[in-house]
Design a protein around this nucleic acid. Sequence first.
DNA 1: CAAAACCGCAACAGCAGTGTTGCAGATATT
DNA 2: AATATCTGCAACACTGCTGTTGCGGTTTTG
Lengths: 194, 194
Amino acid sequence: MAEPAVRRLRADAERSVRVILEAAERVLAADPGASMEQVAEAAGVARTTVHRRFASRKALIEALAESAVRQLAEAVEDGRPDTAPPLVSLHRITANVLRIKGAWSYALSRPDDEGGTAAAGWEQVGARCLELLGRARDEGLLDASVDLEWTRRVYYALIGEALHGPEAQQDPDALATLVVDTLLHGAGRRSGVN
Amino acid sequence: MAEPAVRRLRADAERSVRVILEAAERVLAADPGASMEQVAEAAGVARTTVHRRFASRKALIEALAESAVRQLAEAVEDGRPDTAPPLVSLHRITANVLRIKGAWSYALSRPDDEGGTAAAGWEQVGARCLELLGRARDEGLLDASVDLEWTRRVYYALIGEALHGPEAQQDPDALATLVVDTLLHGAGRRSGVN
DNA sequence: CAAAACCGCAACAGCAGTGTTGCAGATATT
DNA sequence: AATATCTGCAACACTGCTGTTGCGGTTTTG
């Protein structure tokens, strides 16, 4: 079952796939409507080669999303969301995800695509995130009255926002601190309570 | 100066413009790559009529953005951002903006378009928002150490997020409360301090 | 009511993007 | 070294969207 259904690709072909996916990310992030031609050019490859590796434009984008969401899921798991203390895990995951999402911003920009292999990955990430937030709430890190779904969406939005402005230049840990801090305390006045 | 450079449109033509803009919002919100044909059909109008009123696809989208941003600016001003108490103004503006942005989500989805008439409107809205937040900080509503730019972007993101999920069905005031509350306090545990 | 403006309809030209095929030469695999 | 695979290139058909023009009929305006 672990063996691929199709015969394994030759080394250079596999490299082409990688290069094309990376180029697609760059080009489509700059212009979501960009053509296969532009992707091919950015990859330093002929347009026909792109079509050889990916049956259609749709297939390319789906493959891109799947590749990225796999890395994202890995980034989440690396933060040990179900064993480490919630605050620690939250910080680690945030830093990891910021790194991945910075590199694959386009590929990860359509979580709700319906009917793709990537959808499953998104559900896993979403579930893990909810578990973590639930644990955080149980341990008193989050207010008992918060809506976890809403909190998760706010968390996603903060991550997305942190990657856009000038602060995106900061090192990942500082950024993660900003995101987590904002998520937990907002912008209101601190009452000396940490 | 106040008189239009072009001769005033006939009543039915002006109505066409409005109908087309509303249809464009609906159609493009569902699919940003939708064709003029689809817009025309949704508006109950021939495709050529769309082209008669808007020189090009680009012009249509620009007009749509401008119309929406004008309403947005109005919604902000209605909240009296520079006279009312910050918290009151913040709540009112949030409710107003949620209403407008709910109706024109596509038209308002590209604040940084560069080189359009709408850009000026966006700058005005952004400036007003910053002023308000600055006043809120001066009066102790926001923490003295917060970055106003970051706070503003978080505010925008929260508004955008509030319009997507299930909570979007709630009445505008409850929604505004959720947004403002999250902005000020985040999701962390409340320390009994209001 | 008469002029002007607007609309729908049909037809057209043009263009850009997609996806396919065939072949000759380069590259990896055994 | 022999074979299978991959690539670039050129060409092609096809589709869908844009933008334009002209005309006959309708609606607003003054």
